[in-house]
Amino acid sequence: MAEAPPRRLGLGPPPGDAPRAELVALTAVQSEQGEAGGGGSPRRLGLLGSPLPPGAPLPGPGSGSGSACGQRSSAAHKRYRRLQNWVYNVLERPRGWAFVYHVFIFLLVFSCLVLSVLSTIQEHQELANECLLILEFVMIVVFGLEYIVRVWSAGCCCRYRGWQGRFRFARKPFCVIDFIVFVASVAVIAAGTQGNIFATSALRSMRFLQILRMVRMDRRGGTWKLLGSVVYAHSKELITAWYIGFLVLIFASFLVYLAEKDANSDFSSYADSLWWGTITLTTIGYGDKTPHTWLGRVLAAGFALLGISFFALPAGILGSGFALKVQEQHRQKHFEKRRMPAANLIQAAWRLYSTDMSRAYLTATWYYYDSILPSFRELALLFEHVQRARNGGLRPLEVRRAPVPDGAPSRYPPVATCHRPGSTSFCPGESSRMGIKDRIRMGSSQRRTGPSKQHLAPPTMPTSPSSEQVGEATSPTKVQKSWSFNDRTRFRASLRLKPRTSAEDAPSEEVA
């Protein structure tokens, strides 16, 4: 009796068929016929556990003709996506030579605008209408194809895939403007070719909807975003200037109206006075309405000098805001240009540092100066060695804690006790272990408590650290204090090793 083939788990290929790579489910599931010992083939499952149809090819690079078809379809799909992405970037994010197409579109729109203006002049109306009709045909074809291509290429973005995504893309403001202008152009052409009475009025009214094509030149909205950011950044200043200017306008108009309503027919109503105030304070000055009385002229002159300053403030605020924003954008561009080279330089330096163990090129690091100058660790070890030599091999803490019996001779020589300023008595072995921070803190506390006492003391002649007598400086308080830590004499004296002298005989010792 033939044995059933062993159940295979995992992703390994079956024996005897090495080139074939078959994806098997996580659990080997066989058909009921196979479990019962029949000759049925096992049921194939996909990666998600769903059964595959009987005629479906197995996924994998070596699955025969199905694999070749899959490779061809995958390559075609990649080319399709690449083309779609390229078209989308050309239309929505132009760079380099892609601006040539947008310059061509701008020339078409500008020519249409010029011809629309010439069509309103009686001398050039006939020729402009003929040229404009031909140009409209060209623009309908160009913009119609462009609109379709834009909607198709938007599928390269995830949020615009599918018919719902394309509809979302078509609802964008600039796409809506394109659609309105396209419909208006078709209506103008249809009305112009019919030759009816309505054609002339339709051409004159709907052609100027094509002015909206100038708005579509900035599809990404960079200028509007820049203007919005400047207004938002200086909103408080703008609101303040406009508010005060509006108050000056209504008060000036009302007072001039009261002064001129009886003697001047131009100011017969408050609305006429508001019109005069707006034209005057905005420095336009049509001259259609002028005050005639001396009181009205004085009020107009005073409020004009006051109001023009507030009406001119928004222009200066926006101008300075634009300058600052442009400078910030230039700085951001320079930062973006330098970020990648800086990151590459840091990575290269780290690779060199991690692979080169000698690091002989590091001549400006802490390790280099640590090898030249005595390190703080060596100074600490030197302090501890000196203290243990004086205390008979014991550390200062051990000397303080060691009990001394009554009447027993002390094995240590008597030492002079010292007192730290602002604290109780402490171990004499710690007097010379006072660090730089303690010395600086002690000097600052003395300056806070009594700076007036220092200038009363007789001035001391500054001497070099080499000429100081070591026996005289029994305490860190003898170090000359200065008002600034930048004094080199104080810094050098604080680094010197001060020996400890006994109370009975204080021989001067120098520590090399």
Results as ranks from 00 to 15, higher is better:
Val186Leu: 12
Ile189Met: 12
Tyr80Ser: 15
Glu22Val: 08
Cys158Phe: 12
Val87Leu: 14
Cys156Trp: 00
Cys69Arg: 04
Phe137Tyr: 02
Arg204Ser: 11
Gly222Asp: 14
Trp86Leu: 10
Leu26Val: 05
Ile180Phe: 14
Val24Leu: 09
Phe167Leu: 05
Asn264Asp: 05
Ile140Asn: 06
Leu45Phe: 09
Leu299Met: 02
Phe254Ser: 00
Ala154Ser: 02
Glu123Gly: 01
Ser63Phe: 05
His330Tyr: 11
Val215Ala: 09
Leu118Val: 03
Arg93Gln: 09
Phe99Ser: 02
Gly39Cys: 13
Arg72His: 04
Glu123Val: 04
Tyr88His: 09
Ala312Pro: 02
Lys225Thr: 00
Val183Ala: 09
Ala271Thr: 00
Asn85Ile: 09
Arg213Gly: 00
Cys156Phe: 04
Leu11Arg: 10
Trp294Gly: 08
Asp218Asn: 00
Met217Val: 10
Ser31Thr: 04
Pro57Thr: 02
Arg20His: 08
Lys333Arg: 07
Pro57Ala: 08
Tyr147Cys: 03
Tyr147Asn: 11
Val215Leu: 01
Phe143Ser: 12
Glu92Val: 00
Arg216Gly: 08
Lys289Thr: 02
Leu108Val: 03
Pro59Ala: 10
Leu132Val: 06
Thr290Ser: 00
Gly144Asp: 02
Leu249Val: 00
Arg79Cys: 03
Arg82Cys: 03
Asp17Glu: 05
Ala2Pro: 05
Val117Gly: 15
Leu209Met: 03
Leu47Ile: 09
Phe311Val: 00
Val181Met: 03
Gly222Arg: 14
Ala25Gly: 12
Ala304Ser: 06
Ala252Thr: 01
Pro5Ala: 12
Glu92Gln: 01
Asn89Ser: 10
Gly221Ser: 00
Ile211Thr: 00
His77Tyr: 11
Val109Ile: 00
Gln125Arg: 01
Arg43Leu: 10
His292Leu: 06
Ala56Gly: 13
Leu108Gln: 08
Leu52Val: 04
Leu58Val: 05
Ala76Thr: 12
Ala233Glu: 05
Gln71Leu: 11
Val326Leu: 15
Phe335Ile: 11
Val141Ala: 12
Val141Leu: 08
Glu126Gly: 14
Val29Gly: 06
Met217Ile: 14
Ser73Cys: 08
Lys172Arg: 01
His292Arg: 10
Ala191Gly: 02
Leu52Pro: 11
Ala190Ser: 08
Gly12Arg: 10
Phe182Tyr: 03
Thr120Ala: 01
Met139Ile: 01
Ala190Gly: 01
Ser111Thr: 07
Pro54Arg: 05
Ala128Gly: 05
Gly49Ala: 04
Phe311Tyr: 07
Cys112Tyr: 09
Gly55Asp: 04
Leu118Arg: 11
Trp97Cys: 02
Gln347Leu: 07
Gln125Leu: 08
Val103Ile: 10
Phe110Tyr: 00
Ala187Gly: 09
Val188Leu: 00
Arg219Gly: 00
Phe208Val: 01
Asn196Lys: 05
Leu47Pro: 02
Cys131Ser: 07
Glu130Gly: 14
Cys175Arg: 00
His102Asn: 10
Ala323Gly: 15
Ile250Met: 13
Leu26Phe: 07
Met139Thr: 07
Gly60Glu: 14
Ser119Tyr: 04
Ser50Thr: 03
Gln84Glu: 03
Ile177Phe: 15
Leu145Met: 07
Val29Ala: 09
